[in-house]
Design a binder for these strands. Structure first.
Lengths: 228, 228
DNA sequence: CGGCTTATTGACATACGTCAACTATTGTGG
DNA sequence: CCACAATAGTTGACGTATGTCAATAAGCCG
């Protein structure tokens, strides 16, 4: 446990509302580790042992079928809280989590999380708010999958990555195209074709760097209606 | 506000942990209405005004695109809490909600909900737990959409509706096939074909009533791995 | 430089959507 | 209670988006 970890934790938006002593208790109960790319934080189907909070880095949330096909449900970054529901409900993990780039992770034992939730009002409030934000992310993804084509999903994803509202922009994909394709619910081949079809709308670039000529135009194509 | 409403509210699993006075405050702050099939509780894109709690009945959560295509994100029943995240975060609704069968609904003004969340530890705890359950529902649906075929999704849906674990069963679809199809992310025509393909696995019936010869067999086909 | 993974492209297969016709089912008013 | 309309569901023919497989090209790293 290092002083910088406390600072990292305090600066996370998800925990910004938490009073200092709640943060201290979290850190006391848990342990912080720096893990390399590829490390597995938890595995789908296993009983929930730890809550994970990302202090720095990025983690991929994976869903798998019985025959080992896997998909990316979401990409989580610094400030995100992983697999809280499994821990809270004391149920098996619904997803696996794999470290994408070297990351600093706080592990909090499940029992301690459940205790804090019951006893610490600020903690359960912060958790409820954070779960509310995640709910919206998941609902958006479901609407995406059911209502939009794969190129529209890509367009929407790029728009969401870009900082501004209109004009030109350059965005960096957080992961390689295989992972992005899975996150968007398509194959890498199809992602390539989606990129190709967006060229007509002024989307270019190569590798992880993507250039967008006109964000407003792309947003229009993507059916982006309800961002908030 | 009737005595029976208080009873209804107390018996909801989502609020079972709430102490009596928190329930009283919820009812004091809100109003209860019985609404007919077709009533709209909230509309996607509108600012969040009320939290809705279903005391009795069923509500369909709909997502829409700009061109009015719509899909069913989920079906909520007695005990479910609607659109809490929009209310909590004071953001526009991501979905619309339409009453499916005559329902008794508690409306709680958004401001009152946010106040209670901050002041009442039991309420924020109950809300966090309920959001944790919803998170898992949504994650399951995303995994379904990304990893399984439409017939597999139907098989899994039927298995989840059935009470037992193996043997024969008869289940009632909660809504007509158009709605079920949208919930499962397919067209009604394709749902028909999915039912037809499941006939080989012992799935029969007509209308809303579906008969299953062997739940274990259907579960095997559906790739049902991680239910909990 | 050579061997790896990753990305693209093409040819092809297939699941699913679309459209249209037909059939069942439900509801309603006489 | 029937007749009829309206709605819901099924089936077939067909189109299309997306997945699959294979070959090639392009980065990346030792």
């Amino acid at each position: 446990m290092r002083v910088t970890d406390i600072d990292l934790l305090r600066r996370l938006p998800a925990l910004a509302e938490l009073p200092r002593d709640a943060i201290d208790r979290l850190l006391d109960a848990g342990m912080v580790q720096t893990l390399p790319r590829g490390a597995i934080l938890c595995e789908q189907g296993q009983p929930a042992e730890y809550l994970h909070i990302i202090l720095r880095g990025r983690v991929i949330l994976l869903g798998q079928t019985a025959d080992q096909t896997e998909t990316v449900v979401d990409l989580f970054e610094a400030g995100d809280i992983l697999v809280a529901p499994a821990v809270m409900l004391n149920l098996p993990y619904l997803m696996s989590a794999r470290v994408a780039i070297e990351s600093r992770i706080l592990f909090v034992p499940a029992e301690a999380v459940r205790r804090m939730l019951q006893r610490d009002a600020a903690f359960s409030y912060a958790m409820a708010m954070q779960l509310a934000r995640y709910w919206r992310r998941l609902v958006r993804q479901i609407k995406d999958l059911k209502l939009r084509s794969s190129s529209e999903r890509l367009a929407g994803y790029l728009v969401a990555l870009a900082p501004g509202v209109d004009g030109a922009a350059t965005v960096e994909l957080p992961e390689d195209r295989k992972v992005v394709a899975a996150r968007l619910g398509m194959t890498p081949e199809n992602l390539s074709r989606a990129f190709a079809s967006l060229r007509a709308l002024g989307v270019g670039g190569q590798g992880r760097s993507v250039t967008i000529e006109d964000l407003a135009r792309l947003r229009g194509y993507s059916q982006f209606d309800d961002e908030a």
